[in-house]
Design a protein around this nucleic acid. Structure first.
Length: 1023
RNA sequence: ACGCGAGUAGCUCAGCUGGUUAGAGCGCCACGUUUACACCGUGGAUGUCGGGGGUUCGAAUCCCUCCUCGCGUACCA
């Protein structure tokens, strides 16, 4: 016969995600499912993507972040919300410029200054185009259901307008100001960076002790002061030496604190504290008198001689000098140290800057001018030594500040910068979280947010870069206020302030001003750009149309949830809250969910520079996007970061080679299996680059891949058995036990998953679906429905339930496994276009827009679930006996179950399934039955299962098993008895708990009897 | 130094509003090709729940303390 193969028959045995994924993404896009216009008939659900930096391609951290967002968006969309997910990318000012500059230098030997501003920015735009395309492509490959029509970029026109308006409003409201401040200076990139762009790293350094001579020492006075530093070259910028104004009181306070500590110290801590105490006493005797003298000398306006610079600098009395440390005196370099800067302000000291922006010393450094810092350091130390000023050098580990972007040491540097005043803005953002308008999940992260904002440190927003939003301020030194007013009187989009420090007008405008805007003067725009977080801070409202009036903004703002990682809670989340409140008058989002970080197998964060980063596309190619998504969701628990051991996959033989700290940065690796070489991301030489590249993957996605395959095959089974399917309402009475059980379980699971999504319990949801689909749907339901599908009488109902159950399961799985579920949904649609039990209806054209399961199936039926549990237990017992007795799978066994009448009744209905699932047939079931002949037994709560072993028994193994079981039960019984004999327990524990223990004991005793009986029977046989 | 998190089976992790006989996946052992699936099936072994103290009738779960690891923040003349 020439049969036409059905769609189902073509299904391969293994699910292969390659090919199907791109197809469905295209389909969804062509159907317009991703687009979410405002829709008054629906409730809004909005997420704005944390825009990935266009510095490079996405890694697994992004994959996690975006998977979690897509799961929520798909789920809410199915629930009927107008679910909008706004995609986009971030220009990442300093980071991107640094990457491109480095590239230029490496490949063309060209610096930004060689190229010029315009050309460099052009190059960065080209880079941005390339990586934006790559990033958006990656997101699509992952299945992200963003509204792609709304794709935004923090440097696009809309964002530029939002930035302009915000800056202008800040300026007008005097929330933004310009001033000389000590900033973190990156001498490599030649820009200021914020505290948050700085990381600290311990390096080996030295601690130098110098002496500064006292000018004209009087008899009895010290002739020098001793100071110490880790950065000797800064002494050229010293403008004072400080001593504590009341060293006696300060030392007393320290002594008192020490005393307190000692009082509560453990024996182990005591010696160290006592040593400190002794040191303090020594200080009192030896150092304190000198400090008193110096304090008095400071009060008298005395000076010390600064060597090399040959300047006289004052002794000042300031609390910053700690009498308990070092010599008790400290050099003050206001222009190059944050603490000294504060002292400088307090004491009204001159601030001598000794650096040029490029990190070389300037003319203030005298003969050291032009040297780079390391060279200057050496030269200064040598000169001091030669002059007899060097007292001592110690080796010391120094926690040195580095720029996050250039990885070079940060120099504190005095520069003109723009700042945003944080007082009220920060307070508003704190209030929003304190009063619960914005809630942070998990809540423990709220503390860091509040602490950080609580410091209310002004936000330095200017960067000496070329890639970013240029500061919309024009300088005009000469004009009078009258002239300015005359020019701009009719413009409410221009505001101005007098800059006292710079002796010039600062003119801020919404639209660019021409250089000749004020007749007779030349305006010059500030060349700096804004901190990249300035535009990111506006992201939730700028992407929805602000500052224009916009339907989108009205409908979708505030957004629902922000999903991000913990390291940008302050940098980004806090600032979005404050700008949202300031610009729009409302919070930007109701909830912030903070997800775990992905670490490698050694517990280290993933990064490009470490070489342990994983490209999600590698994972997708090996395991499929659904496996990537499910695997990540499965690992997203509330407290644990995600440990992800990383492997290279040999491109020749597919062997997985564990990544170690050593091999992960090699340009070429030899496969230990096949002996062939392959390349890595570090390959740069032509001979390495020509090798095939080994993908970097992790075996932690195998669980998800296997799960997908399992689902695929379960569906394959269903589809193979849906031939001749016809939809019709199914009467409840025609349902089989397993149908009712499965439907009850589906209802329970649907509720559970909904709850988990509401609470961001990704791992719980994934585990629940994994367990349900594998252990219940596949291992039990499908096995049980097999025989009914063979029976023409029962087949139609079985098919209808099967189609409906699979339909529901697919919808529950879809947010996590969009591609696989769509693939099956479409095939299911071909085989069973109308589905449903009470009122079959045409299935949705795509699972993506199908309704989220809620209340459509019969509610949970505890009785049937209980009954089923008995069946599963009995079946398990028989299988266990078969296995331990080594009974061949095809050999039929007979069994007997003693249990109460109700359970026996329920079990007897399941008779056929014992035959198909355990090759076992019942002898009898009921109360008070005694097994005749030789049996193997398992005692279960509420029932004993005996399998007739005539002619089969392996006595020895049966005996040892039973003896083990006997001992186990006896142990449990002893524990329970002890508990129940404890009067306190019986008296104080709640009655139901006590009763539960009594019941459990009775149950255990009955199990024990069964085992004892079995053993005595075995003894008879043996003798 | 302070704050947060973690320490549960060989590995990676659930469980922690106190009351089960402490679970899962991988790995391991045995059996198995039963017509959806070997990316599979059936069964099994494996844990003084980091150490010590306390609260309680009862602690993996609460409190104190110590140890180890990770992260964050601060300071370091």
């Amino acid at each position: 016969m020439d049969e036409k193969p059905s769609a189902a028959a073509e299904l391969p045995k293994q699910y292969s995600p390659q090919g199907t994924e791109a197809k469905w993404h295209q389909y969804w896009e062509s159907q317009g499912y991703f687009h979410a216009p405002p829709d008054a008939a629906r409730k809004p659900y909005t997420i704005v993507i944390p825009p990935p930096n266009v510095t490079g391609a996405l890694h697994l951290g992004h994959a996690l972040n975006n998977t979690l967002q897509d799961i929520l968006i798909r789920w809410r969309r199915m629930q009927g919300y107008a679910a909008l997910w706004v995609p986009g990318t971030d220009h990442a000012g300093i980071a991107t410029q640094a990457v491109v500059e480095r590239r230029l230098l490496q490949e063309e030997g060209v610096s930004r200054h060689d190229l010029g501003r315009e050309a460099l920015v052009e190059r960065i735009w080209a880079w941005k185009e390339e990586y934006e395309r790559r990033i958006l492509g990656q997101l699509k490959q992952m299945g992200c259901s963003c509204d792609w029509q709304r794709t935004r970029f923090t440097l696009d026109e809309g964002c530029a307008r939002a930035v302009r308006h915000t800056f202008f409003r800040f300026f007008r409201d005097r929330l933004i100001y310009r001033g000389k401040r000590l900033v973190n200076w990156d001498t490599y990139l030649q820009t200021a960076v914020s505290d948050d762009e700085v990381f600290h790293e311990a390096v080996q350094g030295h601690f130098w002790h110098f002496r500064y001579p006292v000018v004209n020492p009087q008899p009895g006075e010290p002739d020098h002061v001793s100071i110490a530093t880790t950065r000797p070259e800064t002494m050229l910028g010293d403008t004072a030496v400080a001593v504590h104004p009341d060293p006696d009181a300060a030392l007393d306070r320290v002594a008192e604190e020490l005393q307190q500590k000692l009082a509560s110290a453990s024996a182990k801590e005591r010696p160290a504290l006592e040593a400190q105490q002794q040191e303090l006493e020594r200080r009192r005797k030896e150092v304190l008198p000198v400090l008193r003298q110096l304090r008095d000398m400071a009060a008298a306006g005395r000076k010390v001689r600064l060597p090399l610079a040959e300047r006289d600098i004052p002794l000042v009395a300031d609390e910053w000098a700690k009498p308990e440390l070092g010599s008790g005196c400290v050099k003050i370099t206001p222009a190059h140290d944050p603490n000294d800067y504060e002292v400088g302000l307090r004491q009204d000291l001159p601030m001598v800057n000794i650096l040029r922006p490029d990190g070389t010393l300037n003319e203030n450094a005298g003969k050291f001018a032009g040297l780079e810092i390391p060279a200057a350091r050496k030269a200064v130390v040598q000169a001091l030594d030669e002059g007899g000023y060097l007292l001592q050098v110690e080796d010391r580990e120094i926690d040195l500040a580095h720029s996050d972007r250039s990885k070079t040491p940060i120099e504190p540097y005095l520069a003109d910068q723009w700042f945003v005043k944080m007082d009220d803005l920060a307070q508003s953002a704190m209030d929003a979280v304190s009063d619960g308008r914005v809630s942070i999940v998990p809540s423990r992260y709220a503390k860091g947010y509040l602490d950080w904002l609580g410091e209310k440190r002004d936000w330095p927003v200017s960067r000496q870069l070329w890639w970013g939003h240029q500061i919309p301020v024009w300088y005009c030194p000469g004009a009078s206020e009258v002239e300015i007013e005359k020019t701009f009187a009719k413009h409410d989009d221009v505001a101005w302030q007098w800059d006292e420090e710079g002796q010039q007008w600062l003119i801020c405008a919404l639209e660019d001003l021409p250089a000749d805007a004020i007749p007779g003067y030349e305006l010059r725009q500030d060349p700096d750009v804004l901190d990249t977080w300035f535009s990111s801070a506006l992201w939730p409202h700028s992407t929805l149309g602000w500052p224009e009036k916009s339907e989108d903004l009205d409908f979708f703002y505030p957004t629902s949830t922000l999903i991000t990682s913990r390291d940008i809670i302050t940098l980004w989340v806090a600032r979005m809250v404050l700008t949202g409140l300031y610009n729009v008058g409302d919070i930007p989002f109701h909830e912030v969910y903070i997800h775990p970080k992905i670490l490698d197998g050694y517990g280290e964060g993933m990064s490009k520079s470490k070489g342990n980063g994983v490209d999600p596309v590698d994972v997708i190619e090996k395991f499929g996007a659904d496996s990537l998504r499910f695997g990540l969701a499965y690992l997203t628990t509330e407290t644990q970061d995600i440990r992800m051991p990383v492997e290279f996959e040999c491109p020749h033989c597919q062997a997985l080679l564990p990544q170690t700290k050593e091999n992960r940065v090699l340009p070429r690796i030899t496969c230990s299996k096949c002996g062939q070489d392959f390349g890595t991301q570090w390959s740069s030489k032509p001979e390495d680059r020509s090798l095939s590249r080994g993908a970097v993957v992790s075996e932690r996605f195998e669980l998800a891949r296997n799960f997908c395959n399992k689902l695929w095959n379960a569906s394959r089974f269903a589809l193979l058995n849906l031939e001749g399917y016809e939809s019709a309402p199914v009467k409840e009475s025609s349902l089989a036990v397993e149908d009712r059980w499965l439907l009850s379980r589906l209802s329970t699971v649907a509720e559970g998953i909904t709850q988990h999504w509401e609470e961001y319990k990704y791992a719980d949801a994934a585990r629940m679906l994994y367990g349900f689909a594998w252990d219940e749907f596949c291992s039990f339901y499908l096995e049980m429905v097999k025989s009914r599908l063979q029976d023409p009488q029962q087949r139609p109902v079985a098919q209808r339930v099967l189609a409906t159950a699979l339909d529901t399961l697919l919808r529950l799985l879809h947010p996590m496994l969009p591609f696989l579920t769509e693939e099956i949904w479409q095939r299911l649609g071909a085989a069973a276009p109308q589905r449903g039990l009470t009122a079959p209806a045409p299935a949705a054209e795509s699972v993506m827009i199908a309704a989220w399961p809620a209340g459509e199936l019969p509610a949970r039926d505890e009785a049937i679930e209980q009954r089923f549990a008995h069946f599963q237990a009995a079946l398990g017992a028989i299988r266990e006996i078969r296995s331990r007795q080594n009974i061949p799978p095809k050999t039929q066994v007979r069994f007997l179950i003693t249990t109460d009448a109700a359970t026996a009744d329920a079990l007897s209905e399941m008779e056929p399934y014992f035959a198909t699932m355990a090759a076992a047939e019942p002898i009898e079931w009921g109360a008070n039955l005694q097994p005749a002949g030789l049996v193997a037994s398992v005692a279960l709560p509420g029932m004993d299962v005996h399998v007739d072993l005539t002619g089969l028994i392996d006595v020895a193994s049966e005996r040892s098993r039973n003896e083990k079981e006997l001992a186990r039960l006896q142990g449990l019984i002893r524990g329970k008895e002890a508990k129940l004999q404890n009067e306190n327990f019986v008296k104080r524990a709640p009655a139901d708990v006590v009763q539960k223990e009594r019941d459990a004991l009775a149950e255990l005793n009955s199990q024990l009897t069964t085992v004892e009986n079995a053993l005595s029977k075995l003894a008879e046989v043996a003798s």
